[in-house]
Simulated assay, not measured.
Amino acid sequence: MTEPVTIFYLEMLSADQVCGKESSSSQAVLTECADKNFAINRFFYQYVGESWQWHDKLSWRESQWRDYAHRDELKLFMLTWHGTPAGYFELEKHTDGSVEIVYFGLANAYTDKGLGGFLLTQALQQAWAWQATRVWVHTCSLDHPYALKNYQSRGMTLYKTEVE
């Protein structure tokens, strides 16, 4: 029997709510991937998601990835650590002006470097810089054990919980 999965929905209603965390090293560098290239989105989805059971898009064809990643409503940011890809996040702007953190995470080899709070701070700041009316995300009980705590520590509040 499969154990139930709890989905947590969190939001932030003002940029003033961001409880930022700085990087512990100048070797953590965030870069916006402004040149749309679906292969980069696909790479990070697989690279980061393999540890967290991200399977939904693994069977996507190249055209599906291109349609998804090459939209103006989607932004991709990557985190490098000592020049090596370590994590990423994707932001999606919705028609109501809200910005969703669609994907967020670190590759398994980088989860013990104290980068999660820094990366989430960057995601929130970039979302608000995109003139968000609200920033939101959902995570689940299959995610990293500190994921929910990280979202809440950065100032996001839980507004809905579901069990599947």
Rank of each mutant, 00 (worst) to 15 (best):
D72C: 06
H138V: 00
R42W: 09
L13N: 15
V102D: 12
C19H: 12
W65V: 01
Y146P: 08
H55D: 13
S14C: 10
C19L: 09
D35S: 12
L106K: 08
F77Y: 15
L30W: 03
A127R: 10
Q53D: 14
Q17P: 05
Q152L: 07
L119H: 04
F104M: 04
V48S: 03
L124T: 00
G105L: 10
G87Y: 02
T6K: 13
G20F: 08
H138F: 06
V137A: 09
S23D: 07
E100H: 03
N108K: 14
S25T: 15
C140S: 13
T139F: 01
S153N: 15
L30Y: 07
E90K: 09
V102T: 11
T157R: 10
H94N: 12
N108L: 14
T161V: 14
A123K: 07
I40Q: 08
T95W: 06
V99N: 07
F38S: 13
G114F: 14
L30V: 13
Y110A: 07
K93Y: 08
N37W: 05
T84M: 10
L30P: 02
S63M: 03
S51N: 03
W130S: 05
K149V: 06
E100Y: 01
K75R: 15
F38T: 05
A69Q: 07
D143W: 03
L13G: 10
P145S: 10
E90Y: 01
R42C: 04
Y9E: 06
G116V: 02
Q17A: 15
E92C: 14
Q53I: 10
C140N: 15
L13P: 09
M12L: 12
Y9C: 08
T80C: 01
D16K: 12
M156W: 04
E50C: 05
V99T: 09
A109Y: 13
E73P: 03
K36L: 08
E92H: 07
Q122F: 00
N108S: 12
S25R: 04
F104H: 05
S26T: 11
K21N: 08
Q64W: 03
F118D: 04
V18A: 12
F38K: 11
Y88Q: 13
Y68M: 11
R71G: 15
